[in-house]
Amino acid sequence: MSDILVERTGALGRIRLNRPKALNALTHGMVGAIDAALDRFGADPGVAAILLTGEGARGLCAGGDLRLLYESAGPGFAEDFWRDEYRLDARIARLEKPFVAIMDGITMGGGVGLSGHARHRVVTERSRIAMPETGIGYLPDVGGTWLLPRAPGEIGTYLGLTGAQMGAADAIFAGFADALVPAAALPGLVDALAALPQGAKQEAGHAAVRAAIHARAVTPEPTPLGEARALIDACFAFDRVADILAALAADGSEFATRTRTTLLEKSPSSLVLTLRLLRLGRTSARLEDCLEREFHASLALLAEGDFREGIRAAVIDKDKTPRWSPTTLDAVDLERIEAWLAPRAAPVFPVPADASRPAPASRGAR
């Protein structure tokens, strides 16, 4: 069986991730297959919308296949994979045809890249969405440093540093999703999308997709992140991780204490790098600018950071005891962190002549 299932059902072009035993973890071949499917459906006037789903009951996509990255010989495999993956993420954000992502179950890392930039993003009561990369010595990539800074207040800073999971309500609140559709209503949504009128103009097509989604959507429960926002805004407003930790210690509440403990388990270098990228992402004009920085920083982390050690501890040996280097925040070399932002390969996105053009509409507000 193929890792990607591509089919047309009525007016709907379907892309189904098909590695359910691996939580649909993304491979380089899958990236190419999705890109080819977008070519096919984009050129087909009978396709009114494109739908991304994951096979199996556990999730859309748990992220990139970390074992393949760890076992690859040399940096060339990772460079090629990330280059094509990030270009695909940017393409999804710029698609003219309605692109619907159903983020049912686990949707993390590379899964967020495929879905979080979509025009129409659906979550269910089973959704568990996160960017947990600092826990493996990495960074919230696939455009995470674009999405996270556009969450309300400092919610994105909190999510990016801690890797905390979001349910449906939190994902909508943070700007990672648009509507909550119960899992039981998903087959009806797919049928409605397949029955969309063909040949509709762009905005009419998007309006029809929104109507199909919201006809089946329900109001989410109160958001835990919203309830904690005042504390998060106060403690995560700083540009140094040490100051964030100090603010959490000074607050002393159960939430602050638990959050501080979580941060102290992460790679110190990854925390500092991630915060720097989140602040740069806040003022970036284009998603592509964030992806470009993430690309070069990813290559640096793989070559000389904690990424390989994080994968070893989480996926290879599974001992859950990574040996970070350095082990403490005060030992992180800030000049080295800045050097990780410098270009290490040919650019993913050559700067266009119209680089000042408006970026895609933000999915949230500060």
Rank of each mutant, 00 (worst) to 15 (best):
R87F: 13
A234P: 00
K201W: 10
E221K: 12
K318P: 05
L60E: 06
K318M: 14
D239Y: 10
I316P: 01
A200S: 15
R40T: 00
S298C: 14
R286F: 09
L193Y: 03
L291R: 01
D84A: 15
I337T: 08
L17P: 00
A230G: 11
A346N: 12
D289R: 13
A345I: 04
R357Q: 14
A207M: 12
A204T: 13
R323A: 15
I106T: 08
I136E: 07
P187W: 03
D170Y: 05
V112A: 02
V31M: 02
W324R: 03
T162D: 00
T27L: 06
E304P: 11
F307K: 05
G105F: 04
I316E: 00
G59R: 06
G160L: 00
D233N: 07
E309C: 12
L280S: 11
P75R: 12
R312E: 13
L12Q: 06
Y158H: 04
I172M: 02
R258N: 10
G364M: 11
A208M: 07
T124V: 11
R276P: 07
D243A: 14
R240M: 08
D243N: 13
V332F: 12
L299R: 03
S72L: 04
E125R: 09
D317H: 14
L88I: 10
A37I: 08
A177H: 09
A25G: 09
A169S: 11
I244L: 04
A185I: 14
A331C: 10
Y70V: 00
P220C: 09
V351S: 15
D354R: 13
A211M: 15
L271E: 04
A300R: 01
S267I: 01
H28Y: 07
E338Y: 10
A25I: 07
S269E: 13
G199H: 08
L17H: 02
W146I: 09
R40M: 02
A164M: 01
M30I: 11
G364D: 13
A192F: 02
V122N: 05
A151L: 01
F236W: 05
T274V: 08
T9E: 15
S298E: 05
M1H: 13
S2P: 15
A169C: 10
M103L: 10
A43Q: 05
Y70H: 11
D233V: 01
G105R: 00
D319N: 12
G188P: 02
L51F: 05
K318W: 11
I92A: 04
R344F: 04
A359N: 15
R83C: 06
A194M: 08
L264Y: 04
R94Q: 13
P360N: 13
L341R: 00
P149Y: 09
L147I: 12
W340P: 00
G10R: 13
P358K: 14
L301E: 05
A361E: 15
P220L: 10
A164I: 03
G160W: 05
A62V: 14
D170M: 06
L95C: 07
F176S: 07
L245G: 12
T262V: 06
A339R: 10
A249G: 11
A234C: 08
A345M: 10
G205Q: 01
G305H: 06
A25Y: 03
